[in-house]
Design a protein around this nucleic acid. Structure first.
Lengths: 348, 348
DNA sequence: CTTACTTGAGAAAACGTTTTCTCATCGATG
DNA sequence: CATCGATGAGAAAACGTTTTCTCAAGTAAG
């Protein structure tokens, strides 16, 4: 068994033929030995496996895919080029897929139908087994005309057609948890400051906020304040809130629609000498670490568990590919409250 | 030609056989017709193409790859899971590749050699034509033992072995441009506040800063200040700088090692009533839009052109795959100064 | 009317696997 | 000793392309 390497042609990759030759068996037997299929002596099986090992044989996934009619490959199409939402999703997705031998093609497209088409064609040509379509808001679809060959598709953070399968964070539930947490800490006048009203997520988060207040029997302090997703809006609103004439009417807590607003709001409170969390507790939404950690004090915020969302989407897609039944429609997956200091400690 | 669709088996994908059958030619002829190869009547060629068109034929890239020994597929391996640096790189890369029919597998790995191995094996099995290895700092390699089959590799924002090919931003040049810009606006006492000293990028940016001052015949006002890449450090340092006893010794401009430091520093100056840019101009590094836009005033900062870096890396990789000669070693690509308001206008 | 090219098109091999047959061989059974 | 079922292993087809031959028919030249 010394000159085994003689069987592989110089510079060429090791194929199953080389293994078969080296082990003195046919290609068919080699294949069966390596895949633990078919009948043969343990001696033969092990010999083949030893040879494959020594030669560093790695089966060509494309040849395999050709006969199996399955590429073990997924496509991820996203229009979230900044990646703030999609990045954790793809991290979760590709980690879960890697464990199952599935690889993921990444296609980042602006909302340009031309490029969408281009990438979709590439995916189709490469015979991906399925497609994840990831967006940045739950009420917008991507400008996608899916290829005629129906291929399993899962949507994440994007609008999803009637019969489709999709995953989004449970905005309502996340908001409810955040506000409930504040109430549990003794806060009673919880205001909500959020993004533009035409985002469905804004409506859902407001709804969760209202629901928590209602269930606690508390009046809704004043209508929620809607603006833009920016720090600037948070800053202005922070000032505006503190201009409320009677101190007793001012909030003792603010639930913000995202972390940027929360950050701006906290900055404003600091400027005004209002202490966070002592005078006013603040909770954000997104758990965008870079913001949540950088605020003073560090921000308590709702984590959308995007990684989890990504891996769920991937696993569901695999089930669809395998023809297993999956629950149809949009699924809202639970959020998690990341508790830091901006909401005040338990000890209150 | 009415019932052409009869040639494709129900539910199956259209293959070149279906096209051949439909056009009444052999598979070989069909292939040649579609690829504009070989000799045949224009009539035949066009007929085949028409049929392919009507049937929506898309050649199976894997079958193609098998014979061409080329998968038109790349792998991107990165340990920058947060994605701040890698995301623009992959955007640039995959856009440039999509135009050339090349798809990109994304592998996000923590620095866990186990998972690196797993992903690398997957890439090898899928027969990617080449690999881009992207990191988050230019002086650290990824824990990668490349597969024995030598496969073209390009490094981006990562340390690169002796004979390797790599691309990084020109930190020195970027810093030089930033400081020169400040000097051009009349600033004379430009301090440098940056990240931890053991980052090579920190040394290079300091060097560019020094060089600009030297060439202008200005004394280096005081040693650069090194700390962490955080807003917190910028904030503290902003305060510290303004505590300098003699006002004439205080800087009239600060060149920061990244945008977070710049942001913290600007916040501190604001608190102290120091006007930016009137009293002190500030320039950052990274052009991390979300920070650069959110500072008041918006931050002038050095853009590392990461998208460009990504597309360059991809194109170079393609050249290597094609066996074309490429320049060996690390290439430092130019940065671009993104001028906003924090450095003061031309009108000074 | 041969001969010699040119031209259009198909047959078949190749790429690297998996899988379904088929076929010896062997030990056991009658 | 003939028969039978089990066992180990290989031949060949299939997956969907591309490419290299080969070949017949047509055309121009002698």
């Amino acid at each position: 068994m010394g000159k085994l390497e003689a069987y592989v042609r110089k510079g060429e990759r090791v194929t199953i033929r080389d293994v078969a030759l080296g082990a003195g068996v046919s290609v068919a037997t080699a294949s069966k030995a390596l895949n633990e299929q078919g009948r043969m002596t343990v001696e033969t099986r092990e010999r083949v496996q030893r040879v494959a090992q020594r030669l560093g044989f790695r089966p060509n996934a494309m040849a395999r895919a050709l006969v199996a009619q399955r590429s073990f490959t997924l496509g991820l199409l996203t229009n979230d080029t900044y990646g703030r939402f999609t990045l954790p999703v793809v991290a979760g997705l590709s980690a879960a897929m890697a464990d199952r031998g599935v690889s993921v093609f990444l296609c980042a497209v602006e909302d340009d139908p031309e490029r969408v088409r281009l990438n979709l064609n590439a995916m189709e040509d490469k015979r991906v087994d399925g497609l994840v379509i990831a967006g940045k808001r739950i009420d917008r679809a991507l400008p996608i005309a899916l290829p005629p060959q129906r291929m399993p598709v899962v949507y994440v953070n994007a609008a999803c057609p009637p019969q489709g399968v999709g995953f989004v964070p449970d905005d309502d539930g996340g908001a409810y948890a955040a506000v409930t947490h504040l109430l549990g800490l003794g806060r009673r006048r919880v205001t909500h400051v959020s993004g533009p009203r035409d985002f469905e997520a804004v409506g859902l988060r407001e709804q969760g906020w209202r629901r928590a207040l209602d269930e606690a029997g508390l009046p809704v302090p004043k209508a929620a304040l809607f603006g833009s997703w920016s720090e600037g809006f948070g800053y202005e609103t922070g000032h505006a809130l503190m201009r409320t004439p009677r101190a007793a009417d001012r909030p003792d807590a603010v639930f913000c629609g995202n972390d940027q607003i929360a950050r701006g709001l906290i900055d404003a409170l600091m400027h005004l000498g209002v202490r966070v969390p002592d005078d006013v507790a603040v909770v954000g939404f997104d758990n965008w670490e870079i913001f949540a950690q950088a605020t003073r004090p560090p921000l308590t915020t709702v984590d959308m568990e995007l990684k989890e969302l990504g891996s769920q989407a991937g696993l569901t897609l695999l089930d669809m590919i395998d023809g297993k039944p999956v629950t149809e429609g949009l699924q809202r997956r639970p959020c998690r409250l990341a508790v830091r200091q901006s909401c005040g400690g338990q000890a209150r």
